[in-house]
Design a protein around this nucleic acid. Sequence first.
DNA 1: GGTATGCGTTGACATTTATCAATGGTATTT
DNA 2: AAATACCATTGATAAATGTCAACGCATACC
Lengths: 193, 193
Amino acid sequence: MHEVFFKKLNEAISLTGEEEAIFRTYLLPKKLRKKQYILQEGDVCKYSIFVEKGLLRSYTISDKGNDQIVQFAPEGWWISDMYSFITGEPARYNIDALEDAELVLISNPGMEELRKQVPKFLEFSFLQMRNAYIAFERRLSYMVNLTTEEKYTKLVQTSPDIVQRVPQHMIASYLGLTPETLSRARKQMSNRK
Amino acid sequence: MHEVFFKKLNEAISLTGEEEAIFRTYLLPKKLRKKQYILQEGDVCKYSIFVEKGLLRSYTISDKGNDQIVQFAPEGWWISDMYSFITGEPARYNIDALEDAELVLISNPGMEELRKQVPKFLEFSFLQMRNAYIAFERRLSYMVNLTTEEKYTKLVQTSPDIVQRVPQHMIASYLGLTPETLSRARKQMSNRK
DNA sequence: GGTATGCGTTGACATTTATCAATGGTATTT
DNA sequence: AAATACCATTGATAAATGTCAACGCATACC
């Protein structure tokens, strides 16, 4: 149980058996079927979610009804509405499953305890957060500086797996484009080469 | 010396005199004149920069020659090219002073030592990073979902000081707009009200 | 005091992207 | 096996934004 979770953790910080035992008391397993929600906008995000298996996404719905995908989370990734998770404010994001999924949930108090009781986990959390920060910073600059074609090409390079597993209109949403625009850009590209 | 630095730190984690002494051995003060660079694209970002006084910005220059401002850093804020800082790879960003500035620099080894020797600082770094992450995540969704006018209004609400201190074309760059588009949006808004 | 530079605005026009609508194909459901 | 939902593509058109150029104003510089 929770093999992927501990594998990922041990890659970064090797846990002793004792520490692993502490972790286990805070882990909440959960299965999610395709299309099921684990978080809906307006509710409080009570859990930080680790994906053991399957694929989740977080997304917002704007006033005009456009939705934008904030993040995809395949096996081994974390996902949540971080702001809601730490403040208890209503969530801005929806999170649901794009494929049947197995999850590990940890509450915010659980996280705090783990960071306290297992100092290595604080270190881990810091590094995680730093990487997430870098990724978003970069994504922001791509969003502004790249053309439609470049955005798509970049994503294919960096996350070919996601591009394959996810319908194209969701890729468009993630890139901040309409499905039509992405479709046309892809056609342009294939005509040229 | 370094009053703002320790004030900010003590707001979050109260340091003992001993801990403060440890910090002081890793701090490198530096003054920067308006328009001077502290980091240029292609160089390695050797320091994490805390702004005691003045105003810095980080920005990228794209292939097409457009520049985009990634971040403004007024007093009390941190700035760096995080990726370059931790990996030693060449920086993607330029960082320069928009106003005469006084800085506190810490190297990456310095940071690592401080996180080790002062565990509270690791906690602090984690929380910092988490906030920075949330800010960028939000900014990304604003970038995609908001109209030009909404982007500007939102920035005026959240950072009125920055909007006042910085030329308008830099605000436009930060928001991912051309100066012309921002100028016209502002005119629209003032006509309406 | 005069010149150069930086900045915001405006106009005309080009380009990109979004929107709306229709179609055909594929997968899913019953 | 038929019906339904989902999805990618395409065309026509509208809307938003970028680009290029010119101007006026203020400030900094010599």
